[in-house]
Design a protein around this nucleic acid. Structure first.
Lengths: 231, 231
DNA sequence: CTAAAGTATTTGGTAGGCCATAATACGATT
DNA sequence: AATCGTATTATGGCCTACCAAATACTTTAG
């Protein structure tokens, strides 16, 4: 991140976003924050009207979301918002545990103080956001905490995988962080990760990261199984 | 896998494959086995002609492959077959190591003889295919070896992730298995995984699985860096 | 011989239409 | 009244045709 602004400095930052990408983001966001609920049908022509784009674009967007796992396609019935089953959620958490554990270990083994500093910055932001009850900010800073973990040791592919999986459980995440006591417990677990990284304890960092995810998973499971019978 | 054929027994198994899916498979296969080479442009209208389908379908297929990482989209220039850079390949192998290690550990901890039997069956098939110099069969049976590892402990999501990543390095795989001595070394490493699982040694199974992937990764790296300067 | 102007090529996106299938409503028949 | 066909509708899958903008390639004029 040193000399990357040589000719990027004056570069006109054009939106460059193709209409398709804009639509994709819109629909994904609509799903993630519950405007479309799991199980809702996504009727192509309706989406065209709502988004103001053509069917071609809508269809491409739906295909993309399908491969992200946010949308499921029922044969001869069309696309719906994917329903999240508890088994799948647990598996996603498990995978995140494996990958985040790996990244944490690598960070510890690298032993760079900058990583520790960056992580602590995110953690502070998380604590502040909890204090302010700003849950959206908690999520954002938690993401950047993990992003640091992955990208500071150049594991962009793994970070991509984690992101891909995370969108599928996003509404779960927003529920887990609101859970009783999560405001102190979560940051505490994260600080353990940082501690282990600081003292170069790869094993410990890995374990701490996995513990943190496991805790989130347990809460998510409780939340999910509590709400399933209700509906 | 006990009583799942209650009403599935008579279910009419219609192909149901939509044209889009057929085209998707065709193009993916064409990329994977080198009919389209990395860097080749994928001109929509040409593909339409070659596949005998409309642009609508082709575009959706290209989007899908893009999100699989097999196709890259240059802005205002169009899609090309993604080039595989060595750094990315290493990361993919690393992730596979983490996930396959996890699955192997779970298999060991479950301690079911059926898993061991299934794995051994795949391994025998692999050995036979090596003996017959049938490399396509080696790849197929290797896949089913890992599929067993994941699906017998119900880790379908992780298996999906591994598959997603694997297509991106598929041509590497076909090169690594042809490497000198891989015909005895690879199966040997796999038999170590099985041994550890058989004696319920989770830790050992995990390590053995990770070793196996690490060996493949090392070979792939050698192959890649040997061929890059050549072109 | 170079620079400018024109010409393909190709993607991004739109519009609209056709057909097959599934579900629903509706009417007829026993 | 219950059942059985039969329209109707909604919708996805797929197609053709078109336009605008950007890129790449030629040709022409100075």
């Amino acid at each position: 991140m040193s000399g990357a602004l040589k000719d990027a400095a004056i570069r006109v930052e054009r939106p460059a976003k193709t209409l398709r990408e804009l639509a994709l983001d819109k629909v994904r966001e609509a799903i993630v924050n519950g405007y479309f609920r799991p199980g809702d049908r996504l009727v192509e022509r309706d989406l065209c009207a709502q988004l103001g784009v053509s069917r071609t674009v809508v269809r491409e967007v739906l295909r993309h979301l399908e491969s992200e796992g946010l949308v499921a396609n029922l044969p001869n019935k069309g696309p719906i918002v994917a329903l999240l089953d508890i088994e799948e959620a647990k598996q996603i958490y498990e995978i995140r545990g494996a990958l985040e554990g790996m990244a944490a270990r690598l960070c510890a083994e690298r032993g760079s103080p900058e990583i520790v500093a960056a992580l602590e910055e995110s953690l502070t932001a998380i604590r502040n956001s909890y204090r302010d009850q700003d849950m959206a900010a908690v999520l954002a800073h938690t993401s950047s905490f993990y992003q640091t973990l992955f990208t500071r040791v150049d594991r962009h592919v793994a970070w991509g995988v984690v992101n891909l999986l995370t969108v599928r459980i996003n509404h779960l995440r927003s529920m887990t962080i609101k859970t009783e006591g999560r405001g102190t417990e979560g940051p505490l677990q994260m600080s353990k990760i940082i501690d282990a990284i600081r003292r170069g304890d790869g094993e410990g960092a890995q374990r701490a990261a996995m513990d943190h995810v496991a805790a989130a998973s347990a809460i998510a499971e409780a939340v999910l199984s509590a709400q399933k019978p209700a509906e």
